[in-house]
Amino acid sequence: MTAPIDVGALSAPAQKLAQPSAPQKLREMAARGIAPGLKPGEVVTVLVLLASREEEPAREAAEKTLAALPEPLLQGALGADLQPPVIDRLARAYADRLPVVERLCAMPGIAAETLEELARTGGEAVTELIAVNEERLLKNPRVIEKLYLNKNTRMSTADRLVDLASRNGVELTGIPAWREVSVAIKDELIAEPSPEPTPDDVLFSETQALAEALAADEPVDTHVEDEEGKEEIKEQYVPLYKRLADMTMSQRIRRAMLGSREERMLLVRDSNRLVASAAVRSPQMQEEEVVLISRNRNISDEVLRIISTTPEWLKSYTVKRNLVENPRTPVLVATRLVQHLRESDLRGIAKSKNVTSPVKDAARRHLERRKS
């Protein structure tokens, strides 16, 4: 939350108009952007005040005016020393106007929360603008995190931001797979900033478009198993798989975190453990996907270990049962989860030919304990 507007910093006429006790007619005029004697910056400040008061009768009119300020009033306000809440309101209202955002970002009073919001929601041009001020980014690492997790941020820019943080010892805990991201970037060539997207940027955005076109309404697996248990990629996902295969490790990790369910189901099987781990750590991951992954016998033990140490996923009984029954689950993990299963499932596990001997033994022991 940005600090409230400091009414005491306004001129005497503006302070009078800003008071809730000001005549209703004057407040209604101010809500339309009409405040004779006030400078443009103060007019907009009063508008923000009126729009922020829940019980203000002129609030709706003020909000409407702020959303479409007359150009002379807007430009005049941008030339003033605006307070953080006013900058924040204008940044949100005019996020699609790069010249406006550029002038707001250059203001010394802009709050970290405002930069974070622009980094989270801004289009490509806005994210490129924010990403150039390295000194400010290092002071506000959360802005780097928001930029990285914004699909509109170019891949080459995301790589530079990760490299910047890594070189300066900044840990970006807001990126779920930060360990994987920071390790991946060490061995990759970092592209210099450029006015136009790089070929890798184009590949990244085109892959996103393809993934969105293939997205299903319900979670589905991207693979099918043959009679011998070997997996093959379903035909419709082969083009997406090939595009992902052409990417660098850092690009695949970012797609794993930001991409579609289908991309996660492809990347969670990646031969590179960093990529597979990032996929299962994705903030987009849903329980239905984890159910599919946890029962898959072609998934790496590291992915299954991550699932087993994520409290959110262990709330699901199906996930716990799948982990116990999956022979790829680390033995210590599977035997620890045995105690949480129902007797009917334990009896089946104790007799199963597809479960490892230590897990079957653990199931038998727990059955005996429950009988005694």
Results as ranks from 00 to 15, higher is better:
Glu135Asn: 15
Thr318Ser: 13
Val220Asp: 08
Asn152Val: 01
Lys16Asp: 10
Leu90Trp: 06
Thr198Gly: 08
Ala125Leu: 06
Pro85Gln: 06
Pro72Tyr: 00
Pro330Asp: 03
Glu42Met: 05
Gln24Asn: 13
Trp313Ala: 05
Thr157Ile: 14
Val275Arg: 03
Ser205Pro: 12
Asn152Ile: 02
Val202Arg: 15
Val290Ala: 07
Ser344Glu: 15
Pro23Lys: 10
Leu203Val: 10
Gln24Ile: 11
Leu10Asp: 03
Pro195Val: 01
Val291Glu: 12
Thr309Asn: 11
Ala245Cys: 15
Leu129Tyr: 08
Lys315Phe: 15
Met247Asn: 05
Arg136Ile: 13
Arg167Ser: 11
Gln83Val: 00
Arg261Cys: 04
Lys315Ala: 12
Asn298Arg: 15
Gln251Val: 07
Ser250Cys: 06
Val7Ala: 13
Ala22Gln: 00
Val100Ser: 00
Val290Pro: 07
Val101Ser: 03
Ser205Glu: 11
Leu69Asn: 01
Arg120Trp: 11
Ala58Asn: 03
Leu149Asn: 06
Ser250Ile: 06
Thr356Pro: 07
Gly8Met: 14
Thr310Asn: 08
Pro327Met: 01
Lys64Met: 09
Val126His: 03
Tyr317Gln: 13
Arg32Asp: 12
Thr198Leu: 13
Leu332Thr: 12
Asp201Met: 01
Ala106Lys: 12
Glu55Gln: 13
Asn272Gly: 10
Ala12Lys: 12
Val132Asn: 06
Gly169Gln: 03
Leu50Glu: 03
Val48Gly: 01
Glu289Ser: 05
Val101Ile: 06
Arg342Gly: 15
Glu196Lys: 14
Asp345Tyr: 11
Ala125Met: 09
Asn354Glu: 14
Leu341Arg: 09
Leu189Thr: 12
Pro23Arg: 10
Arg364Lys: 11
Ala278Lys: 05
Val44Ala: 00
Ile130Val: 11
Ala279Ser: 07
Asn326Thr: 03
Met285Glu: 05
Leu147Trp: 02
Val101Glu: 03
Leu314Arg: 04
Arg305Cys: 10
Glu128Trp: 06
Ala22Asp: 03
Ala18Met: 10
Ala334Arg: 00
Tyr148Gly: 00
Thr198Ser: 14
Leu66Phe: 01
Leu258Asn: 07
Lys353Asn: 11
Leu74Asp: 01
Thr2Gly: 04
Glu71Pro: 05
Lys151Trp: 13
Gly123Asn: 05
Arg369Tyr: 09
Arg136Cys: 13
Asn296Ile: 00
Val224Phe: 12
Pro13Glu: 03
